[in-house]
Write a protein that binds this DNA or RNA. Structure first.
Length: 374
DNA sequence: GTAGGGTTAG
């Protein structure tokens, strides 16, 4: 642009600054901020809002506030974008009270809430478990003439599901559909996650079908969530069918999928089956990670195959994988269970050396086993 | 040219 004598203007710089912000290159963004000022251009409300938002997302709230002061100094007042960025950042940092203070300030200076502002506040309330107030806010925005959209309802539905209010969540879904707003992959995923947590598999299947009919295909996370829920509910056959379905449909299989599969089979007592799947991982171009190893090691320990568990543990270390607290704990309990007293103590000291403190759960379990053996 | 929603494993 400069070569052909086309001078960049404020909009050009704003686009550029936004780009560097989005690609997490704040120093570059500030460089252009200074450059535009040096070129005699005045940063406007969009420039400042962009930078304030980026600083918020980088967790530099204090610096964002400084920019707010700076923009006021040059005669620019924060608008609904600036306020919404700050409100959202405070909500996500767990400072709901500060977010509410900012909202109050908006009212005082007559900057109206829009659908995004409301959604951020509503999500913040949900995150704190204040779902009733979130619902009140939904009613207030509608009364105020601001129409909630898909994202607003998703936040509200997610909040209710997280608080185990599945019925209410489904009520909001119905209300949303009544306004002719269609769920997308995110919302379907949220609903399936909720139904899984309550082992409502029939409803889950209905939702999966509905989703498919709408032309939205379930992603690997949704499949894995469902598979895990099937295993944990003792529905081994359904879980395995789902694995087959994933393969048939070309859904991406990851270490998480295998972890769920191996763990599920082990906890059902089907250690041999688990081992078979484990050996087949290279066919999927996968190298088992520590979590998958742990699932099988734990399964072997609990099914009287401590020697195989130890072999697997050595194999894992041979592949330069660093054992973590969870796998050490599984092996430690396995050894105790098999009266391998000294070995269990050795693992416990190794954990101490590595700075891995037993948490309350591991410790209670350790003491229990210890006394049994003693 | 600026702001908002979800989820999986040991």
């Amino acid at each position: 642009m400069e070569d052909v004598g086309c001078e960049p203007d404020v909009i050009t710089y704003n686009a550029l600054i936004n780009c560097f912000c989005k690609y997490e290159q704040m120093p570059k963004a500030f460089e252009f901020f200074l450059e535009m000022k040096n070129n005699g251009l005045k940063p406007n409300i969009i420039t400042y809002s962009t930078l304030v938002d980026a600083l918020c997302k980088e967790g530099m709230l204090q610096l964002a506030i400084k920019f707010l002061v700076d923009m006021r100094r040059v005669g620019l007042l924060p608008n609904e974008f600036t306020y919404t960025s700050l409100i959202d950042a405070n909500c996500k940092a767990g400072n709901l009270n500060d977010a509410l203070k900012l909202a109050k300030e908006m009212l005082q200076v007559h900057v109206d809430f829009n659908v995004v502002t409301y959604t951020c506040l509503l999500d913040g309330l949900c995150e704190e478990g204040r779902v009733n107030e979130a619902e009140e806010l939904l009613r207030a925005m509608i009364k105020d003439g601001v129409a909630p959209n898909l994202k607003t309802y998703t936040a509200l539905i997610h909040g209710h599901i997280k608080d185990k209010w599945m019925e209410n969540a489904m009520g909001f879904l119905k209300e949303m559909m009544g306004k002719n707003i269609k769920p997308d992959l995110l919302l379907y995923g949220t609903i399936i996650w909720g139904l899984c947590s309550q082992s409502k598999f029939e409803e889950c299947k209905l939702v999966m079908t509905e989703m498919k009919d709408c032309g939205i295909s379930a992603n690997p996370v949704i499949y894995t969530t469902l598979m895990d829920a099937y295993f944990k509910a003792g529905k081994t056959k359904e879980a395995l069918n789902l694995m087959q379905e994933m393969c048939d449909m070309g859904i991406e299989i990851t270490n998480v999928t295998f972890c769920v599969l191996v763990d599920g089979l082990c906890k059902t007592g089907l250690v041999q089956e688990a081992n078979n799947y484990f050996s087949r991982m290279p066919e999927f171009n996968l190298q088992p990670n520590v979590a998958v190893y742990t699932a099988l090691i734990d399964g072997l320990c609990k099914n009287n195959c401590i020697e195989d568990a130890k072999k697997l543990f050595d194999e894992m270390q041979g592949k330069n994988m660093v054992p973590d607290k969870i796998v050490y704990t599984a092996l430690m309990h396995g050894n105790l269970k098999h009266w391998e007293f000294q070995e269990a103590l050795n693992i416990r000291s190794r954990m101490s050396e590595l700075g891995m403190e037993l948490d309350l759960h591991a410790y209670t379990s350790w003491s229990g086993d210890f006394h049994k053996v003693a």
